[in-house]
Amino acid sequence: MRVLLRFEKGNEVKYISHLDMQRLFQRALRRAKLPCAYSQGFNPHLLISFAAALPVGVCSDAEFVEFQLTKFIHPLEVMKRLNEVMPKGVKILNAIEPEESFPNVGSVIALAEYAFTTKNGDDYSKALKDILAQEEITIEKKAKKGFALVNVRPMIHRLTQNGEVIKATLSCSNSENLRADKMAEILSCNGISVASIKRTSILICIDGFIKEPLGVNK
């Protein structure tokens, strides 16, 4: 059975890299004694996939992981058992058994929303307007060989301020991705210094419809 989880990556664990986060989950699944499915073959590995790697230092309320169990356990029971064995800072927020036709979250991910908390809470509406008014914002991105210059302006879809928090909706697909730490650099170039970053949601695109993979249980 497939299990899709949404989890929180809190302040305590924000420096754990994507790869180390995967290891952390594999060990948590063992501690929770969940009957996980493994791949076939000479070197079997756990069937688990994480959507959209988060840069080191960024917190998140919208991390998604999918794995498979060899027998049915209610997703909310899976969530409960995992939350009992997680280190501080990692909390499962919701769990579902996706329908069979439901695609892997990582493959249909389109957008991500972030909250950038500013250092001084000033009103930056003009700076934000200026950023959005630019036709091109070019940054250096890692390419296959060395670095390439990329125009990321089309990847910024929304930029608003609410109190001391700047909310941004950015492209986060396999073909177009603007990382949160890069966005923070752009903000900083426009005189906005960021104290902390949190991913607040991820949006997927199925058949042209944009939606959340699964909401949060309140």
């Binding site: 305590e12 420096y15 890299s17 080191v56 501080k88 104290a195 902390s196």
Partner: peptide
């Protein structure tokens, strides 16, 4: 400390909080 940790290699080495 957060500002510094963002500038170093493998910052998780300096913050503890392990299981």
């Amino acid at each position: 400390l957060d500002d510094i940790l963002l500038k170093v290699d493998k910052p998780a080495r300096y913050v503890g909080g392990e299981l």
